[in-house]
């Protein structure tokens, strides 16, 4: 099972280049798409979900030519948009029943079984009779997962689903995702590095409409092993440090000093201490390289 994205480009009428000759191949499993806001993640996701057309390029899912046969893809697609709502004053049960019919499940019995199943997976069975427009943010996102599962999709696209969730809701949501990731491709976009670390077996970092790096999270951190250094410096020194070294991130301590993380092949100075590389370092290195290029 493979999703092949080839040389995808899209420039909006206002001149923003959202996708820039983007090529990407995604295999079965949980794929994380990491990038800052405005990187083009949503544009890519919406294009994959057949909600907008690129100017150039092709997308193939298995043997489906997605851009020319959007309807064929939709039959096997599950999509959770970044921003969605539902009709007011309708319960999860009633909405899912309508949506399941729209996904082509005509038998009432099949529908009822399926709805019960997706409500249980998403932990919404207890609140199935409540109006979805009264749900909390986390419940609404899980409803979004419930609806996308209705056609047993092979390609699942979830666009920034953890944005705005509190930590408990976020964990519950990620657990639901983990549960459904078995025999399909799940593409998951986020600007939160921890989401990827906790969940994905493959990932890409995106910015400026381009893929900056594609790698397995574990391999990506292995590549920069022994190249991450930390130093605790005063606030006044930060600027100097940034000029001298590749400073990836800086965090304030309680005494107003700053811990900086630096990327370098060799120990940059004797006061630097070697640190364990993490995925956040990978992310910032990719973004830094892109900004310099």
């Amino acid at each position: 099972m493979t999703l092949r994205i080839n040389k995808l480009s899209k420039t909006y009428p206002n001149g923003v280049k959202a996708l820039d000759n983007l090529t990407l191949e995604i295999q079965k499993g949980m794929f994380g798409l990491l990038g800052p806001n405005g990187a083009g993640k949503s544009s890519l996701m919406r294009t994959l979900a057949t909600l907008q057309n690129p100017d150039e390029g092709t997308i193939y899912f298995e043997d489906i030519d997605v851009l020319n046969n959007p309807m064929t893809l939709r039959k096997t697609l599950g999509y959770l948009p970044q921003d969605f709502g539902v009709y007011p004053k309708m319960s999860a049960m009633d909405l899912l029943d309508y949506l399941a019919t729209l996904k082509g499940i005509t038998s009432r019995k099949d529908r009822n079984n399926l709805i019960q199943q997706v409500l249980e997976i998403t932990n919404l069975y207890g609140v199935r009779k409540q109006f979805v427009d009264n749900y909390s943010g986390g419940m609404k996102q899980r409803f979004g997962i419930a609806q996308l599962l209705l056609n047993n999709p092979k390609l699942i696209i979830v666009d920034e689903p953890t944005a705005g969730l509190d930590p408990a809701e976020r964990n519950r949501f990620l657990n639901v995702l983990r549960e459904i990731a078995s025999s399909n491709i799940i593409i998951f976009s986020t600007h939160i590095v921890d989401d990827i670390k906790d969940l994905c077996n493959d990932m890409a970092i995106m910015n400026g409409g381009k893929i900056l790096k594609k790698s397995k999270p574990s391999e990506a951190t292995k590549e920069i092993e022994n190249k991450i250094w930390i130093h605790n410096c005063s606030r006044e020194k930060l600027e100097e440090m940034e000029q001298l070294h590749i400073v990836l991130s800086s965090k304030y301590n309680e005494d107003n000093s700053i811990n900086i993380r630096v990327y370098a092949n060799e120990q940059p100075a004797e006061y630097f201490i070697k640190a364990t590389a993490n995925l956040e370092d990978v992310y910032f290195i990719a973004l830094k390289n892109h900004h310099q290029a």
């Binding site: 909600l51 309807m71 939709r74 949506l99 729209l102 609806q147």
Partner: peptide, 9 residues
């Protein structure tokens, strides 16, 4: 709701 509905078959 269109963001969901318009990806339906």
């Amino acid at each position: 709701f269109n963001n969901i509905l318009f990806t339906y078959p």
